[in-house]
C-alpha cells in the first residue's frame, strides 16, 4: 500500500453524478458512511478501485469519485480479484447485494474468501431483489411472501456470516445502514484488515421490503435486539446494559446481570481467535431469543493470495536463469540448420 497520506473530506469522494436510489433507501446512508471511511483512511484517492455487480447497490461506484467498474451480475468478486492481483498496491472494494453475491455470484464470492484476496466486500442485505422489483432472495426468511413466492418461500435462507466463515473467511463484520457512525468505523477496519473483509450491511428497501430490519434499527427496540461486539470487551447489551452472553456448555446463552451474575461472568469478545466456533455462533444469533450481532465478529490475520502470488513471482524471478523471452525460447533441445 502506498505510504503517502493525504487529507480529504468525505465530499472529496462524491462524484458529480445524480444519486438515483429511491428517497429513504438505506443505500444513501451507506454511501455517506463509505465516503467518511475513505476520507479517514488518508490514502491517495487514485488508489481506490470500486467494483460492483448488478443490483440497486451496485450503482454505488457511479456516485464515488474514485476508479469504478460497474460490471455484470454476480461477477464483481472475480473482477475485483483480478484488479487486486494485477496491482496489489490498490485499495480494492466490492459493492454487492444479497442477490448478486449469495445467488448468481455465490461461487466467486466463496472462492475470493477462500483465497483470502485483499479486497473489502460490502454486502448490502435487504433480503429482497429490489432492481428487478420484489422477488425473494437467498437471504429472504423462510416463508417470505414476495412476487415470486406468493404463498411464501419454501427454502432456507443463507446467513452470510455463516457462509463467510464456512468459506474459511478471516474477516466478517455486520453493521446496519441506520448507524452511520458504526458503519464508518467498521468499513475503515475492513479496509485496514489484510485479506478478504466481508461487511454485511443490513439495509432497508423502502419499496419492496420496508421495515425488514425494523427491530434492529428503531430507537425503542434496537438496544434489546442487537449487540455491538467490541474487541476485548464483555458481550453486554440491552437498553439498560443488563443482559449478556455466556457460554453454556457448547452453546451461547443470554443471561441477565445481577442475582449473582456479574460482568466478569460474561463472555469477552475475541475477534482475533483463529478457531471460528464462537464467531460462527455469534454470526448466527437471531431474534427472537438472541440479539443480532453487529461489529467485527471475526478478524484473523493470515497471508493474502495477492501477496503470496507476488512473493512467489519475486522469488522465482531472482532464482531463474531465464530473464526474458529470448532466453526462454532457446531453452531445451534446439539445433542449428546450416
Amino acid at each position: 500500500m502506498n505510504q503517502e497520506t493525504v487529507e480529504y473530506s468525505p465530499k472529496d469522494f462524491k462524484s458529480d453524478q445524480e444519486v438515483r436510489w429511491c428517497p429513504g433507501c438505506g443505500d444513501h446512508a451507506v454511501l455517506s458512511a463509505v465516503t467518511r471511511a475513505l476520507a479517514e483512511l488518508k490514502i491517495p484517492k487514485e488508489q481506490f478501485a470500486f467494483i460492483s455487480g448488478i443490483g440497486c447497490s451496485s450503482r454505488f461506484p457511479y456516485y464515488l469519485d474514485t476508479f469504478g467498474f460497474h460490471s455484470i451480475h454476480g461477477r464483481a468478486s472475480a473482477i475485483a480479484s483480478g484488479v487486486k492481483v494485477a496491482n496489489p498496491d490498490l485499495s480494492v472494494w466490492q459493492i454487492t447485494g444479497d442477490g448478486d453475491s449469495m445467488a448468481i455470484g455465490g461461487n466467486h464470492f466463496i472462492h475470493a474468501i477462500r483465497r483470502n484476496i485483499d479486497i473489502n466486500i460490502i454486502l448490502f442485505n435487504n433480503e429482497i431483489y429490489g432492481l428487478t422489483k420484489g422477488q425473494y432472495s437467498p437471504t429472504s426468511q423462510k416463508g417470505a411472501v414476495t412476487k415470486t413466492s406468493p404463498f411464501g418461500t419454501v427454502e432456507e435462507p443463507f446467513n452470510p456470516g455463516e457462509l463467510v466463515i464456512g468459506a474459511k473467511g478471516k474477516f466478517f463484520a455486520r453493521t446496519i445502514d441506520t448507524n452511520v457512525k458504526l458503519s464508518t468505523e467498521i468499513y475503515k477496519m475492513a479496509a485496514l484488515h489484510e485479506g478478504t473483509s466481508v461487511v454485511e450491511t443490513l439495509q432497508n428497501c423502502v419499496i419492496f421490503n420496508d421495515g425488514v430490519h425494523k427491530l434492529l434499527s428503531d430507537r425503542e427496540t434496537r438496544d434489546d435486539y442487537t449487540i455491538v461486539l467490541r474487541q476485548g470487551e464483555p458481550m453486554i447489551f440491552g437498553k439498560d446494559n443488563d443482559k449478556g452472553l455466556v457460554l453454556d456448555g457448547l452453546k451461547l446463552k443470554v443471561v441477565k446481570l445481577g442475582n449473582g451474575i456479574s460482568e466478569k461472568d460474561i463472555l469477552v469478545h475475541d475477534a482475533q481467535e483463529n478457531n471460528p466456533g464462537v464467531h460462527l455462533m455469534l454470526a448466527n444469533m437471531k431474534n427472537p431469543g438472541f440479539p443480532v450481532a453487529l461489529g467485527v465478529i471475526r478478524s484473523v490475520a493470515a497471508p493474502t493470495y495477492d501477496m503470496a502470488l507476488n512473493g512467489q513471482i519475486t522469488k522465482v524471478k531472482k532464482e531463474t536463469k531465464i530473464k526474458n523471452v529470448d532466453d526462454l525460447i532457446r531453452t531445451g533441445s534446439t539445433w542449428e540448420s546450416q
Partner: peptide
C-alpha cells in the same frame, strides 16, 4: 479460477488494472 466465468472476469479486472 473457480470456473470459466471467473477466468474471463479476473482477466477483465486485470485489464482494467493495466
Amino acid at each position: 479460477a473457480e470456473d470459466e466465468i471467473a477466468g474471463i472476469c479476473t482477466a477483465i479486472g486485470a485489464s482494467f488494472a493495466g
